[in-house]
């Protein structure tokens, strides 16, 4: 199946080949709901580990999954660094700039980091195990307008391409003496304009070229269109969808009962 510049990796795994894209989307939504339902680091840690386990089980190339994990790790660190200043429940562990840092605050920060990490990792596994064609088809079958489906899958497909363009632009500006890694944050932000400007223009140029090429091949000529790729909900999909539904209901009930929650009153 043509993959193009998508981050999708073709593998012979259950997640890749035997699960319908709609079911995978339901799994993604469920992971998001569960991530928001709980704020206990143990529960969120377990869920994040499950998602990373799913990536391993799907035989994804971890060298390509690593950037996603690193992004997730960054949110984890950010959560631990920021949230303890706002959550001051329990006895103080130590003080920073006059703010009491508590063990509950640290654990809540860890949970918030894990929450975003879980979402980032889940979205990564979803994109790496679902081909753009099936992703679009799945969303269209779920009621998304055809054009919106194409726009979405095209946008996802363009991310690595634009990243390659960004690398070229950075090289071109470095050749003129630009040092993006030096200076204070404001100076760096100002310097990044020299990369973002050409990148934005390249993106517009690329989008326009794709739109013209699609129009030239009859895009939008009919309201309905056929698809080379066929998808069908199997018994396995129905079981997973039922499990997703139950997991969402259970998470809401548990949340109302205060289970899986380390600090009450916070999402």
């Amino acid at each position: 199946m043509p993959v193009g510049y998508s981050i999708y990796q073709e593998r012979d795994s259950v997640l890749h080949q035997r699960i319908d894209p709609r079911t995978k989307f339901a799994l993604l939504v469920t992971s998001f709901v569960l991530a928001l339902a709980y704020n206990h680091p143990a529960v969120l840690g377990l869920l994040t580990a499950t998602v990373i386990g799913a990536a391993w089980w799907s035989r994804l190339d971890f060298r390509r999954f690593l950037p996603i994990l690193l992004a997730a790790g960054w949110f984890l660190v950010l959560g631990i660094l920021v949230w303890p200043f706002y959550i001051q429940v329990g006895p103080p562990l130590f003080f920073i700039f006059g703010s009491a840092i508590t063990i509950t605050g640290l654990l809540f920060g860890l949970a918030m980091g894990l929450r975003v990490s879980l979402m980032v990792a889940a979205a990564g596994v979803w994109m790496m195990t679902t081909s753009p064609q099936k992703m679009t088809l799945g969303l269209v079958r779920m009621g998304l307008p055809q054009k919106a489906g194409i726009a979405m899958s095209t946008a996802i497909r363009l991310v690595p391409l634009l990243n390659a363009k960004r690398a070229t632009i950075v090289e071109a500006q470095r050749a003129r003496g630009l040092r993006l890694d030096t200076g204070n944050p404001l100076a760096r932000a100002r310097k990044s304009v020299s990369v973002l400007g050409p990148l934005l223009l390249s993106a517009i140029d690329l989008a326009q070229a794709i739109a013209i090429a699609m129009d030239a091949r009859g895009f939008g000529a009919r309201a309905e269109r056929t698809s080379l790729v066929q998808i069908e909900l199997t018994r396995l999909d129905r079981i997973i969808l039922a499990a997703c539904g139950m997991a969402i209901v259970a998470s809401v009930v548990l949340r109302l009962l205060g289970i899986g929650v380390i600090v009450q009153g916070y999402l």
Binding site: K165, T168, I169, A172, A175, S194, L196, L201
Partner: peptide
Amino acid sequence: VGYCYQNPDHQIFS
């Protein structure tokens, strides 16, 4: 060594 890229639009932004 001044290096000039194939596509001038990769560097123009001002």
